[in-house]
């Protein structure tokens, strides 16, 4: 039933955009916890999109890691710091320029990628069944070096945090 999947795709895509918008610019509430919760919803609806692509593994990991662990930590920090309502700030020129530069850059990269890709190419077929193995092979064979570099980056961050948090007790 292609029609039904299409419907789901538009539903999830719409929800992702909506929640994403509410996360950064919620007109009703400027509470950081609300933003964090909308980010969680964004992530969950994005997982829905992954499911539609038959990338079950990605969807599960997306929820498990981002929604389930990372965002809980975010929430944890927001609550512990007891952040109040965010104030409406005047637009800062530097922020404006750098921000829009980043957006335009990202848009260009995305656009090029989209143009280069054949519409609805074989992407689905690879992941059609038991995509976990395929993903593992890609990660640990073709992209092993970037993967390891990323792990080291994370390790560095971790060590840095430990160093910073231990500093005061001495």
């Amino acid at each position: 039933m292609p029609a039904f999947t299409d419907l789901l795709f538009f539903a999830f895509a719409g929800l992702t955009l909506l929640f994403g918008f509410l996360c950064v610019a919620n007109p009703l509430s400027r509470n950081p916890v609300t933003s964090a919760m909308f980010l969680v919803l964004t992530i969950v609806s994005m997982a829905g999109l992954f499911v539609l692509l038959h990338a079950f593994f990605l969807a599960a990991v997306q929820i498990l890691v981002y929604a389930g662990a990372v965002m809980v930590l975010f929430l944890f920090v927001i609550m512990l710091l007891d952040l109040g309502e965010e104030e409406r700030r005047k637009l800062n020129r530097v922020a404006l320029v750098s921000g829009s530069a980043a957006v335009i850059g990202l848009a260009v990269v995305l656009g090029r990628a989209l143009l280069a890709a054949k519409p609805m190419a074989k992407a689905g077929a690879v992941a059609a069944d038991g995509d976990t193995g395929a993903l593992g092979r890609i990660l640990f064979q073709s992209y092993l070096l970037p993967f390891e570099i990323l792990s080291i980056l994370l390790l560095v961050a971790m060590v840095g945090v430990i160093l910073l948090s231990k500093k005061e007790s001495r």
């Binding site: 969950v44 079950f56 593994f57 599960a60 929820i63 498990l64 929604a67 389930g68 662990a69 809980v72």
Partner: peptide
Amino acid sequence: LYTFGIVSL
């Protein structure tokens, strides 16, 4: 993975 994802929510 699904179970863990849901449990973590």
